[in-house]
Nucleic acid binder design. Sequence first.
DNA 1: GCCGTTTTCGGCCCGACTGTTTTCAGTCG
Length: 592
Amino acid sequence: MAFTFSNAQIADLFEEITAALIVQNDDRFRIRAYENAVSIFRQLQEPIEYYWQNKLLGTITGIGTIFARKIDELFTTGKVAEFDAIRQSLPAGMFGLLPVEGIGPKNAFKLANIFKLADRETAPAKLLESAKNGQIRGLEGFGEKSEAQLIDNITRYLLAGTVTRIPLYRADQIVTEIGAYLGACPAIQTFSPLGSHRRRKETVGDIDIGITTQQPKVVSDYVALIPKISKIVAKGDGMVRIIYGEGIDVDFKIVDPGEWGSLLQHFTGSKAHNVALREMAVTRKMSMSEHGMKIKGAWQRFTQEDKFYQSLGLDHIPPELRENLGEIEAAKNHSLPNLVTLADIKGDLHTHTNYGWVNSHDAGLSSVDELADTAVALGYEYLGVGDHNPSISTYNVDEIIKQIQKRSRFIEQIKNSYEKRVKKSTIKLFNALEIDIRSDGALAVPDAGINLLDYAVVSIHSSFKQTAEQMTERIIKGLSHPKAKILGHPTGRLIGKRDPIAANWDSIFGFCVTNGKAIEINASPDRLDLTDILVKKAILLGVKLVIDTDAHHHSTLFGMQSGIDVARRGWATKADIINTWDAAKLTQWLIK
DNA sequence: GCCGTTTTCGGCCCGACTGTTTTCAGTCG
Ligand SMILES: Nc1nc2c(ncn2[C@H]2C[C@H](O)[C@@H](COP(=O)(O)OP(=O)(O)OP(=O)(O)O)O2)c(=O)[nH]1
Ligand SMILES: [Mg+2]
Ligand SMILES: [Mg+2]
Ligand SMILES: [Zn+2]
């Protein structure tokens, strides 16, 4: 296979073809199929190449025989002849203009044509030149205002660079900030962050906020005066869209309190979920939107979201599931999963203390006592007391074993003294380590050391770029030790910083099911892996998961919710998550 | 181009704002 393409590359390719088809006034439903394919490609968490190799493209809803054939052609020949022909019929510069806010396919084409923009990289800057020279205002369909907008939008685009999505923890901070401002407005009855933020997606493209009021004009004006506003993109009685702070898009939708239920539904999305619901309404001769349900020309209003779903015969769907990935069907059949909640969690199995050996990676900052006290405060039944394995560049094999013997005695002492000090507590402390899976799959601790532990979390911390085959073999080898019970932060990705490893997850999941291993959902805000869609797949195959904070400080033990969010997006119930089990059941499963 | 518990043909979500428009196309959500 000489040709390889990432999912992002394929999504970008289809996105450009979508734009080209719009320019060519192609069939709007064909265009919709292309748009749909783009969002599917961006959502997939395994390589399209993997689907292609295993002839699984046809199993993806929205990818039919024609799209599958085009992808086959792409991987086989390195290009799609039809796509190349379509693109070559258009000025290349138009594709460089598309990322600019307010420039869609039609205008991108028109402007690239008029100003002979043949190069996509330089197109925005060149167009900006022409706009600044007043060459836009005279064009048909443009005027002084649109010229000024164009200048502003291109300038912002050139300054901001490529679009990056906002990590959810950062979005939480922004939401709190904006919430403080909205809360101070007497005219606002209720407000709530919606969109992908409410669905708890790992990153959000923007911040979406729904508002109810009986004075929409007052609220619209109030919102537009928010501190740190950079620009009003659009504003009416029903909505305000702004650029906020360092260039974050914030969408406000403002409705009458009587429409809150339908607004919650609409503005939470996802788009694919909404479209599927609306198509369902259409088959029942109804029409739905953020304003309610239109039945025989008459609007029915909803103050409550669950009632809105009910009007379609559906159970209330948890926001985390609203991705049009089977949740509507499940809501119809009353078979939605009973998703895991924070209250179900009974312990944390991946932590780091300040124990004083030279760690292979960052050591923790808190003492065992501090971690245990916090775990008790959280009402936990057990806690995995962990460290990274001793650094193999600092210690030789014998020294590593001696170090672990010493640490095991230390933990034993702590357990005794802790149980004396905190008499009421019955918290169970496990002697655990996080051990590197080295590039050949060997664990960084010899057996004689591992066997002193209650269990080990094994993780990839190096050589992230191996092939999927190598990596899969490596991980399975690493998990093969009986004490290796948990695969830590399995994809190795750091949101916005490091891509996930390539691996054959089907094989790894299969191994875990057969051999009684759990896969971690790491709650660190920049990890959040295993990722949501792979969680769903793992659970379908029967894999057990564990949600860990990977705390390097005792306060971080409080950060479990972000892992719960991921688990819920992966359809996880209490039964799927081993650290919802009580100490007896967990111990029996974990300690070998 | 995709899809199927009325269909393998004939459907395919719905709405807000902007600017230039004389009735609406484009863009975005
Ligand atoms: N019915 C319908 N609803 C839409 C459409 N586009 C967006 N919405 C709704 C559902 C979305 O979740 C919500 C907010 O739009 P966004 O573009 O901000 O998307 P979302 O927040 O889901 O994802 P994001 O992380 O912002 O990219 O508006 C659409 O084309 N049709
Ligand atoms: Mg959004
Ligand atoms: Mg939005
Ligand atoms: Zn780690």
